[in-house]
Amino acid sequence: MKRLAKTVALTLLKIVVVFYTIFPFYWAIVSSFKSGAALFSVDFFPAIDLTNYRDLLTNGNFLRNILNSAIVAVSVVTLSLIFAITSAYALGKMKFRGRGIVLAGILGASMFPQIVVLSGLFGTIRWLGLYNSLGSLVLSYMIFSLPFTVWVMTSFIRQIPAELEDAARMDGCSTWAMIWQIYFPLLAPALASTGLLAFIASWNEFLFALTFTLSDTVRTVPVGLALISGSSRFELPFGTIMAASVIVTVPLILLVLIFQRRIVSGLTAGAVK
């Protein structure tokens, strides 16, 4: 009896947690299907009305924003991973003086508050002629993406047994061949999880995107979303905002659910030893 009561209590508690976790997103979906006066009534199972989605997709900027976000995130992930794999090899598999300092520097950089470099980076971006272009975001996102990918890849590469490297050396592998023919294929799953996390971080970034881009056509999704406003002061565009939120979030959630295991391993690789 006591055991049954305990199981019931635990299950109820779990239901509460799940409800609390999911409800805001559920409410966003529900609201995105309401337009006009329906939006302002509290109705948990409304009729499906696609007006908001139609408005959003016919307004060119939103699609452009999504494309911008995708371009930036894919570029950031690709560049970070290429840099990270050679760096991780050096940091995880080679013994050299200064290794500890580099690792500490990378760890420090990963804790770096973005606001600190805003004014300095603004100058660099102007100087490189990248202001108000997607390039400014690709460059500035390296500030969080690179330390993170290098750190996580280093801890992944360390888990690969040292004898494999010895065997490859005996087989005549040069360092370059070692990285690309032995470690690269072996690290494919790790690259996938690290890349996914870096992708999500780039997709969601707000501060730099808000500061380094100006025109609607180079904005990324988070900025576009934050700046959606009604045509008049009294119009509440929440229906459209919720529709945009759903469009932006659903692919992420699908990605995250499909690659659940990879993401958890990527999240924990840097933190749990």
């Binding site: 999500i200 707000f206 934050a226 959630i253």
Partner: peptide, 21 residues
């Protein structure tokens, strides 16, 4: 665990807007 990943994956700006509403 899968459910837990949902709020984490939602961009902060999106959750801010969701809660604002």
């Amino acid at each position: 665990r899968a459910v837990m990943l949902i709020p984490w994956a939602i961009p902060t700006v999106v959750s801010a807007q969701m809660w604002q509403w």
